[in-house]
Design a protein around this nucleic acid. Sequence first.
DNA 1: GCACTTTCCTTAGCTCAGGTAATGAGTTAA
DNA 2: TTAACTCATTACCTGAGCTAAGGAAAGTGC
Lengths: 146, 146
Amino acid sequence: MPDLSRTPDDTAAVNALRSGVMRLSRRLKHQRVDESLSPTEMSVLGTLARCGSATPGELARKEHVQPPSMTRIVALLESKGLVGLEPHPEDRRQKVVRQTELAEAMLEESRRKRNAWLAELAGRLDEDEWATLRAAAPVLEKLAHM
Amino acid sequence: MPDLSRTPDDTAAVNALRSGVMRLSRRLKHQRVDESLSPTEMSVLGTLARCGSATPGELARKEHVQPPSMTRIVALLESKGLVGLEPHPEDRRQKVVRQTELAEAMLEESRRKRNAWLAELAGRLDEDEWATLRAAAPVLEKLAHM
DNA sequence: GCACTTTCCTTAGCTCAGGTAATGAGTTAA
DNA sequence: TTAACTCATTACCTGAGCTAAGGAAAGTGC
């Protein structure tokens, strides 16, 4: 049972959180740096950049997506030359997905563009608001992984 | 031009923010309280609860959705008895969308259920993390509205 | 060593929520 | 009163997820 002392008026917080996350995610879809890449495809590339390499199943679990969806995503990324597929060294059922240098370059470029978008928005927040958001980012990620 | 002094390593923050928001939004889709209501439909009800009433066009702008999409959303909500449509007092092209008592009751019920889900997750965060998230919620909403 | 089960990836087909383009009705301006 | 514009709508399309079902490889019991 979680700590009940923190729940008194969390109602408002969770409503704001849910609403904000949903709306922001819709806007983020429009801010994609490469028009031909969906947000989840970008997210997979980010995961690969962090983890080095992974099997499709691992990626599906990390992205909270079903295996068939990851199959299609990986196939798309491969057709664009952003990931390579290698046979798994110990299990021939599995594959190893690894990002290419092209993906690395694209991520760098996308980081640059996203910073521009962020600066545009951050400029309209005051210092405290932005500091709050910076602090919250890793917690959001943790929450998304739970 | 936004304040450049805050940009040094915001790269990491914006990446975490983007990734966290996208993943969390995907999980939130699964946590819908009423299986028959999409996240945007819920969001529209929330907006109506805040604003009282609005025209479809206003709702579309607020939710960052195109007018035809809002037409369909409003039609669905009406067919479920969650909103009512009245003629606009001054402009016969427009309509006024207003939530029903049924919607009010459903929102209350959904708040209760969402709190349960939140408590489950909050119980796994430490106090500081949760405080950070609470503080960030309104900023996220503001960001989503910018 | 051979069937049985499980696991991983894939294929096929579906759904749902969004978008664009085009239409119709109502309003405003010339 | 005609022209241009705005709001909502209709029709159609797309994109990204899902489930169900399969095929290949690995593990398990006899």
